[in-house]
Design a binder for these strands. Structure first.
Length: 787
RNA sequence: GCCGGAGUGGCGGAACUGGUAUACGCGCACGACUUAAAAUCGUGUACCUCUGGUAUGCGGGUUCGACUCCCGCCUCCGGCACCA
C-alpha cells in the first residue's frame, strides 16, 4: 500500500517550489488555452460536480503541457453576486470577509485535488483591480449606446429584493430562491444585447467545437422569428396599434385585438376608454401574479375600437394576460378559428369565431396544409395561404418584420455585493459617465448591506458615497447606486487571465493575440443560455471596439454530465446524500478519485455516484505501484512492445477527445499486461508512468522519481508512438455463413482471399460449415462471408 | 406541447467510417494465502431447453452482415414553455 497522504503532501510542496505549472511564455511553442468555468466560492467548498469538471480539464491540460504546448490553465473566483451576499448575511459577516474565507478554502481544495493551475494568474471578480475593467467595459457599452436607462416593468423577486434579467428566471420563478416573480416598473440599466442577436445566432455556425445541444439551446433562446407587422388604426384615440403576426393570411378571421398588460398601447388608449379604473386595476393584478394565469384572463377596453385594415370593420380591443409584453410588439390580432389561445379566449368572452382557412373543420385548426386556401375572406377566397401572407400584408399596409425571443439584458441589481455601475446623475448634465481615470468606483464599506426592497440599492443610503461632483459641470451630482449582476464579471474573465496585472488596459493586444481564443472551455451545461450568451455578446462588443481580435471567445466547449447521488437522483443537503470528493480522497487518495471520475462514464454523461466503485481505481493504482519492484533491464517481447504503442496511440487520442473513460480502460489493460511478465522492462514502465501522469499526478511523479528521474514527470515529454510498431502481425478474422459468425481464423496481416480460404479448410468445423458455399464478401483483415 | 440527448449483462459502461456484441471497472461465485476475517492474488461470470439457439427499448425495412443506416412506436433524462 502506498501512503497517499504522504505522497500528496510532498509533491504539492515540490510542485509549488519548482513552479512546475507556471505558464510558459515561449511563443515558439504552439499555444493551448484550457479554461474551466470558474466557481462561485460557496461556503460548502468544492462539490463533486466541480471536481469532475476541473479534473477533466486538468487531464487534458496536463497532457498538452507534456506534449510541449504552451499551456495556459488558470483559475479564479466569481465572487460577486446574490449567493455570496446571502451567505454573508446568514453568517452575520461582511461579504468581503466570507468571500476571502471561502476563496482560501476553495484554493486549498483545488491544490489538494492536484489541479495544475498557474496560481500566479489567479483572479477574483471582487478585486477592485479586476472590477475596474468590468466597469470600464460597461462604460464602453454606455458610450456606444448599448446601455440605456429604462423604466419598463421588470422581473422582481420579492425575496431577493431585486430586479432580474429573463435569464435569471426558471419557469417564471427566481432561479436562485424559487420565489414567484412579480412584474414591477423599475428604473434600471439595460444592455442592448438584441442589437447583436443576429450575430450571436449566425456565428453559432462557426463554432465547430461546440455540441449541437448547446447551440440549439442558444438558437432557441435567441428565438429569431420572421413575420409581419400590421397596423390597426384606432380613430377615436388617434392612435395606431401595430400587431406582430406570422399569419397575416388569417386577417379576415380577426375578432379582436389583444394587448399585453405591459403594452404602451394600453397607456395611450386608457384616457379614451370608459372603464379606465377597471382596466388599471386589472393591469395591477396582472403585474403581481402572472405565472399561472389562464388564457381566459382579460378585459375589454370599453369604447375603444380598432379599424380592420382591409375590411374597415370595427374590432374590439382587449387587455389580455396571455399576450407577452416583451415579444413582438406586445399586441396581437386574434383569430379564434386558427389559434388555440385565441379560441379559448373567444369562447369565454363571447367573441365571433370565423374559419378563414380551408381544411380541418375541427376548430381551432392550427396547421396549414399545403393545399390550404383562404375562405370567408372576400375577394381573396381561394388564394393559397403562403401566397396570401404577402398579399394581405400589402393590402393591410403592413410590412415584413423580424422579432426575437431574446430580450435586452436587465443589468441593474438593487443589491450591495456587486460592481457599482460607474455613472453619475447630474441635475444639469443628466447621466454622466465616470471618467475612465477615476475607475474603479469602489464599493464603499458599510455597516448594513441588507437589501431594502424599495427598488433602491442599499448604496443609496450612503450619502457620503452617493454625493459627488459632476465630472462635467463640477456641480452637485449623485452616483448611480445600482450594482451589476453576477454575470458581469464572468463575461470577460478569460481575457484577464492572459494579462492579470494590467493596470493601463483591459488586456495587452500582443498578449491577447498570443492566447485567444480559448481552445478548450470546460464547464456545466447550465450556463448554455446565460453566461455563454452574455460572454459571447461582450466579446463581440470588445471586438468592435478593437480590444480583442477574435469574434468568438471559446473555440471548443465541453460540457460535463451531472454526478447524481448514489442510486440516482439529485444530491442535496436535505437528503443527506452529498458526496464530498475531498472526504473520499482522505481515505482512498486524490489520484484514485481522479481516476474514478475519469473512468466512470463518458465526460458529458450523467452518472450516479457508486461508493463501492471507487475501490477499483485504487486497486489499479496499487498494482501500478507494485510493478516498480519488477522493473529491470532487458527488452519486452514483441507483443508487449506492440501493446505499448497501441496504448500510447489510443490514450493520446482519447484524452484529446475528452474520452477519459476509455483512456483509463486502455491504461488498465496495459498495466495488467505488464503485471503478467516476470521482469518489467524499464522502457515499458517509463511509458506507463507518463501516460498515467495526467490522471494520477501524485503517484506518477512518485514513481517517476523512483525510476531515477530528477525532474517532475509533468515536465517530461508525453510518450509518442510508432504507428507501424502498433500494427499486429497476425489478425483474427471472422468466418460468417449466411451472416452468422461460425468461427475465426488467424492469418498473417494482409492475407489474400486464397490464403484465408485455405486456412478455413484446415479447420474441420469451419470446413463442414462452408462446404459447397461460395464466398460472397471478403474484406481483408476483417471477415470472410459465405453464402 | 416544442427542441435536444439517451435506451447494451446484476450495475457503470465498451464496440472508430456497417464487419468476431458485452473491452475496462464494480458486484457476485469458487479457489489460494490465513487459526479466522479483512486485504491481496488466481479462475469464472449475457441468457436458454447448450454439437445448437436467442439477445443491444418495441415493431418493420435495407444488407452477405445492423448497437451502428432507414420508417413507425414506447420509455427515461435535460432544456424551453401562453413566443402570436
Amino acid at each position: 500500500m502506498y501512503d497517499h497522504k504522504e505522497i500528496e503532501g510532498r509533491w504539492q510542496k515540490r510542485w509549488r517550489a519548482d513552479k512546475v505549472y507556471q505558464t510558459s511564455e515561449d511563443t515558439t511553442k504552439e499555444k493551448c488555452y484550457s479554461l474551466v468555468m470558474f466557481p462561485y466560492p460557496s461556503g460548502d467548498g468544492l462539490h463533486i460536480g466541480h471536481a469532475r469538471i476541473y479534473i477533466g480539464a486538468d487531464i487534458y491540460a496536463r497532457m498538452r503541457r507534456m506534449q510541449g504546448y504552451r499551456v495556459l490553465h488558470p483559475m479564479g473566483w466569481d465572487a460577486f453576486g446574490l449567493p455570496a451576499e446571502g451567505y454573508a448575511l446568514k453568517q452575520g459577516k461582511h461579504p468581503q470577509e466570507t468571500t476571502e474565507q471561502n476563496v482560501a478554502n476553495f484554493k486549498q481544495q483545488c491544490q489538494q485535488l492536484g489541479l495544475a493551475y498557474d496560481w500566479e494568474r489567479e483572479i477574483n471578480t471582487t478585486d477592485p483591480a479586476y472590477y475596474k475593467w468590468t466597469q470600464w467595459i460597461f462604460l464602453q457599452l454606455y458610450k456606444k449606446g448599448l446601455a440605456y436607462e429604462s423604466h419598463a416593468p421588470v422581473n422582481w423577486c420579492p425575496s431577493c429584493k431585486t430586479g432580474l434579467a429573463n435569464e435569471d428566471l426558471s419557469g417564471g420563478k427566481c432561479e436562485r430562491c424559487d420565489s414567484a416573480v412579480e412584474r414591477k416598473p423599475l428604473r434600471q440599466w439595460v444592455l442592448r444585447i438584441t442589437d447583436y442577436a443576429d450575430q450571436l445566432l449566425d456565428d453559432l455556425e462557426t463554432l465547430e467545437g461546440w455540441s449541437e445541444s448547446v447551440k440549439e439551446v442558444q438558437r432557441h433562446w435567441i428565438g429569431r422569428q420572421e413575420g409581419f407587422v400590421i397596423p390597426f388604426v384606432v380613430p377615436s384615440a388617434g392612435a395606431t396599434i401595430e400587431v406582430f403576426t406570422t399569419r397575416p393570411d388569417t386577417l379576415f378571421g380577426c375578432s379582436y385585438i389583444a394587448l399585453s398588460p405591459e403594452s404602451g398601447y394600453v397607456e395611450t388608449l386608457l384616457p379614451h376608454c370608459t372603464n379606465r379604473e377597471a382596466v388599471e386595476e386589472y393591469r395591477r393584478e396582472q403585474y403581481i401574479a402572472k405565472a399561472d394565469e389562464t388564457v381566459s384572463s382579460g378585459m375589454v377596453l370599453e369604447g375603444i375600437f380598432a379599424k380592420h385594415p382591409i375590411t374597415g370593420d370595427s374590432v374590439p380591443v382587449y387587455v389580455a394576460g396571455y399576450v407577452l409584453g416583451g415579444y413582438g410588439t406586445g399586441a396581437v390580432f386574434a383569430v379564434p378559428a386558427h389559434d388555440e389561445r385565441d379560441h379559448a379566449f373567444a369562447q369565454i368572452h363571447g367573441l365571433p369565431i370565423t374559419q378563414v382557412v380551408s381544411g380541418d373543420d375541427h376548430l381551432p385548426a392550427v396547421e396549414i396544409a399545403a393545399s390550404s386556401v383562404l375562405i370567408n375572406s372576400g375577394k381573396y377566397d381561394g388564394t393559397p395561404c403562403e401566397e396570401a401572407k404577402k398579399i394581405l400584408t400589402e393590402a393591410a399596409g403592413g410590412k415584413p418584420e423580424v422579432v426575437y425571443r431574446l430580450q435586452d439584458w436587465v443589468f441593474s441589481r438593487q443589491r450591495y455585493w456587486g460592481e457599482p455601475i460607474p455613472l453619475i446623475h447630474c441635475e444639469q448634465c443628466g447621466v454622466v459617465p465616470v471618467p475612465e481615470e477615476d475607475l474603479p468606483v469602489e464599493l464603499p464599506e458599510v455597516d448594513s448591506y441588507e437589501p431594502t426592497g424599495t427598488g433602491e440599492s442599499p448604496l443609496a443610503a450612503i450619502t457620503e458615497w452617493v454625493s459627488v461632483t459632476c465630472p462635467q459641470c463640477k456641480g452637485a451630482g449623485k452616483r448611480e447606486t445600482n450594482t451589476m449582476p453576477q454575470w458581469a464579471g464572468s463575461s470577460w474573465y478569460h481575457l484577464r487571465y492572459i494579462d492579470p496585472g494590467n493596470t493601463t488596459a483591459l488586456v495587452d493586444k500582443e498578449k491577447e493575440r498570443q492566447w485567444m481564443p480559448v481552445d478548450m472551455y470546460t464547464g456545466g451545461m447550465e450556463h448554455a443560455a446565460r453566461h455563454l450568451i452574455y460572454a459571447r455578446f461582450w466579446h463581440k462588443v470588445l471586438r468592435d471596439s478593437g480590444a480583442v481580435s477574435t469574434s468568438e471567445p471559446y473555440a471548443t466547449l465541453r460540457t460535463v454530465g451531472i454526478v447524481q447521488a448514489e442510486g440516482g437522483g439529485k444530491m442535496s443537503k436535505r437528503s443527506g446524500n452529498v458526496v464530498d470528493p475531498l472526504a473520499i480522497a482522505e481515505y482512498i487518495g486524490v489520484d484514485a478519485v481522479r481516476v474514478y471520475l475519469a473512468h466512470i462514464a463518458p465526460f458529458a454523461q450523467t452518472v450516479a455516484w457508486d461508493s463501492k466503485g471507487v475501490a477499483g481505481p485504487r486497486r489499479f493504482l496499487e498494482r501500478v505501484y507494485a510493478l516498480r519492484e519488477k522493473v529491470g533491464a532487458g527488452n519486452a517481447d514483441k507483443a508487449v512492445t506492440r501493446l505499448r504503442h497501441k496504448t500510447i496511440l489510443s490514450v493520446t487520442a482519447d484524452i484529446t477527445a475528452y474520452r477519459f473513460n476509455t483512456a483509463v480502460a486502455t491504461l488498465m489493460i496495459f498495466a495488467n499486461a505488464l503485471g503478467d511478465i516476470e521482469t518489467v522492462p524499464q522502457e515499458e514502465y517509463r511509458v506507463l508512468v507518463r501516460l498515467l501522469a495526467p490522471f494520477a499526478p501524485y503517484l506518477a511523479d512518485e514513481l517517476w522519481h523512483a525510476l531515477g528521474n530528477e525532474t517532475s514527470v509533468h515536465t517530461a515529454p508525453f510518450p509518442e508512438a510508432d504507428a507501424a510498431a502498433a500494427q499486429e502481425e497476425t489478425v483474427t478474422i471472422a468466418v460468417q455463413v449466411q451472416g452468422k459468425t461460425r468461427g475465426t481464423v488467424t492469418v498473417p496481416r494482409g492475407s489474400e482471399q486464397e490464403a484465408v480460404l485455405s486456412t478455413v479448410q484446415e479447420d474441420e468445423r469451419l470446413r463442414d460449415y462452408t462446404n459447397g458455399l461460395t464466398v460472397k464478401v471478403f474484406v481483408k483483415d476483417k471477415i470472410v462471408s459465405f453464402v
